[in-house]
Amino acid sequence: MTWTSLPDWWWPFLFILLAGWLATDVWRFLGVFVGGRIREDSEALVLVRCIATALVAAVIAQLILYPTGELASSPIWLRVGAAAGGFAVYLATGKRVLIGVAVAEALLVIGLLVL
C-alpha cells in the first residue's frame, strides 16, 4: 500500500490522515495525557530527542542530496557547497537563521545562473 496504490481521489487523503495526522497528533495527545508525569530531563527523553533529531537530519540530507523536481538537475557539489557555505556563515555570525538561509540561497542561485 503506497501513495500511488489506489487511483481513487480519496486515497491520498486517507494516506495523509493515517501516515500524517495520526502519526503526529498521537504524540501531542499523549503529551496531554502523560502531562507532568515525565520529567523534562529524563534520560528516555534524551534518547527520544536524539532519534527525532537524527531523523530530521536524514530528511535534510535527503532534500539536499536527492532532491526532486527542478533542483534534481543541478550538480550535487553546488547544492552541498551552497548548504555548507550558508551553514558556515550562520555559525560565524552567531547562529542567525535568516543569514544562513539567505547565504545558501544566494550561493545556489548564483551557481545555477552561472552554470
Binding site: 503506497t2 500524517g20 502519526a23 504524540w27 501531542r28 503529551g31 507532568g36
Partner: peptide
C-alpha cells in the same frame, strides 16, 4: 519524502511518527 519514494503506508507512518516524537516532550513541557 516517503510518499514520493514509494514507501508503504506503515513505513511512511512509522517515519512520520518517529520524526514527531519530539512533539510529546514539547507538549509535556
Amino acid at each position: 519524502g516517503a510518499a514520493t519514494s514509494g514507501a508503504t503506508l506503515p513505513a511512511a507512518a512509522l517515519s512520520v511518527a518517529l520524526s514527531s516524537v519530539r512533539l510529546m516532550p514539547m507538549v509535556v513541557s
